[in-house]
Amino acid sequence: MKKRTLIAEELDAAGIKVQYDEHVKRILSSRQVLARILQGAVSEYAGCCTEEITEWIEPGIEVSRVPVKPGGKRENELLITGDNTESKVPGEGSLTYDIRFRALLPGQSKPAAVKLLLNVEAQKKFYQKYHIVTRGIFYGARMLSEQLDREFTASDYDELKKVYSIWICMNAPKHIGNAMSEYRIAKQDLIGAIPEQQANYDKLSVVIICLNEEAPEGNCAKLHGFLNTLLSPAMDAAEKERLLAENYGLVMEQELGKELRQMCNLSEAIEERGIKKGLKRGLKQGKAQGRAQGRAQGIQLAKAVIRLAGEGKNEEEISAACHITVNSVREILSD
């Protein structure tokens, strides 16, 4: 029996796509990558160098894997030991975070001084059945309520830590392009003025980062250039590693380089498999017009289907756009 490799022909397209998603999560969970995200998207780290931020990120970064019920009052749970990626609260259901971690604020080094709890999510498209900002608020609110009996006890609410929910949206529509917005709790005096320090109510921020690799750079922030390069499905691994090192100072650790190469290989495998299926269909349809034309039609059809799927279109939308049946779309994208 032949040895199964990461991009072996035996792997079905659905399985490959699942692995691709997992590689994206693991790449985003790199301390070097998270440091650059914090530097560009979290105001508390503006002006700090990535080397410093890397040291402030806790040792344990959790990527969605096996869910574990959070909670408990053991002393070591108040230290920097990593957060579970699934949240279960009685009566509130459960949710699973892509990446969850904690970080010290600049200038603070003691475990007791942990101030920020952060969650990073990767999305293949901007438009969902819901608004991403609304989901981000829900995730942030859950991270706040979970702190009872973990970060503080009884009525000691002043120990509540600020939370960030950061959403990275790939394939943003052209009219949005490369953009970033923050949604946060703010104070507005309606009658008179109530004296209150911002730190006492500024406890939740949702940051949405939209990426569009094809959009003109314009005033695009350095973070967008970094993430577009890091997550590009079209760029080969060697070129990606070179640009990340030369332009963004990323040190190609063995594990990070391995994840990048595997992600690129998986992307190529998905496209190659889809082209083969589309080619087969195109050859069948093009017999009357000649084999060469049928081959060209098959490749063009497969590329169109794969491109639309990469933009987050569902099977029905791809079917309508390519003028083929839903079953044909499934045939190209999977076994």
Rank of each mutant, 00 (worst) to 15 (best):
M1N: 14
R4L: 15
R4C: 11
T5A: 08
H23F: 13
K25T: 01
S30P: 03
Q32W: 04
V33W: 00
A35V: 00
I37N: 05
I37R: 08
A41S: 15
V42E: 06
S43C: 06
E44R: 07
A46I: 05
T50V: 14
I53Y: 05
T54I: 09
W56V: 01
G60L: 04
I61W: 01
S64N: 10
S64D: 10
P70I: 04
G72K: 10
E75I: 12
T81R: 13
T85R: 02
S87N: 12
K88D: 04
V89T: 09
T96N: 10
T96E: 09
T96Q: 14
D98G: 00
I99E: 00
R100V: 12
R102Y: 02
Q108C: 14
Q108S: 13
Q108Y: 15
V114G: 03
L118F: 05
V120W: 00
V120C: 02
E121V: 00
A122W: 02
K125Q: 09
K129L: 12
I137E: 05
L148K: 15
F152I: 02
Y157S: 05
E159F: 07
L160K: 00
K161Y: 00
Y164F: 15
I166Y: 00
I168G: 02
N171L: 08
P173I: 05
K174I: 06
A179K: 11
Y183E: 09
K187Q: 14
I191V: 14
A193E: 14
A193G: 13
S205Q: 07
V207A: 07
I208N: 05
I208C: 12
C210L: 03
P216K: 01
P216L: 04
H224C: 07
P233M: 04
E241H: 06
L243R: 14
A245E: 12
Y248S: 05
M252C: 10
E253I: 01
Q254V: 12
E255N: 06
G257C: 11
E259W: 08
R261A: 12
M263Y: 04
C264P: 06
L266Q: 03
I270W: 07
I270C: 09
K280Q: 14
L283W: 08
K284L: 15
R291P: 00
A296I: 13
Q297Y: 08
Q297V: 11
K303C: 05
I306T: 02
I306F: 03
G310S: 12
E311T: 09
E316R: 13
S319V: 01
A321R: 07
I324Q: 04
S328V: 08
S328H: 12
R330T: 07
S334D: 11
